[in-house]
Nucleic acid binder design. Structure first.
Length: 133
DNA sequence: ATAATGACATGTT
DNA sequence: TAACATGCCATTA
């Protein structure tokens, strides 16, 4: 049985280059609807952790308001902005905040990808309703 | 076992 | 809009 951390990293890996997802979206996709904050914790930890072999595309995860919300000193918001722009995601700076048009770049899983998540119908429905409309 | 800690989300002022 | 308050959850000490 995969741990929350493992499932989180796997889900983040599934975000295509040039796309983004919210913390809450990732949480829902791994079957733990309200663990958005915990997802952030995992990314923060895995990011500073040098033992992980596969690099995690942590920069593709932002909050649901479309704002870059990192506070990490080693990997600050400005770095996330650069990484995103390198993938073609437009990041605008407005009132000391780095923002992304999240609905424009949001990763929208295909029905096929959704089925692979093997989630209860209830969660699938939630994903569709919240993010795929 | 318990409590503190966040790269969150949502509703209310 | 923005600030504040509340709810939630895995991880860590």
């Amino acid at each position: 049985m995969p741990t929350f951390t493992q499932k989180t990293l796997q889900a983040v890996h599934s975000i295509p280059k040039g796309k983004v997802a919210s913390y809450g979206q990732i949480a829902l996709m791994i079957g733990v609807p309200r663990a958005a904050q915990a997802v952030g914790q995992v990314l923060h930890a895995s990011d500073t952790n040098t033992t992980s072999t596969a690099p995690i595309p942590w920069w593709r995860v932002i909050n649901n308001a479309g704002r870059i919300s990192t506070t990490c000193l080693e990997h600050p918001a400005i770095m996330q902005k650069q990484l995103l722009e390198k993938e073609g995601v437009v990041v605008t700076e407005l009132a000391h905040e780095l923002k992304v048009d999240i609905e424009k770049y949001r990763y929208r899983p295909t029905p096929d990808e959704l089925s692979k998540l093997e989630l209860p119908d209830e969660y699938i429905e939630a994903i569709v309703k919240k993010y795929l409309l």
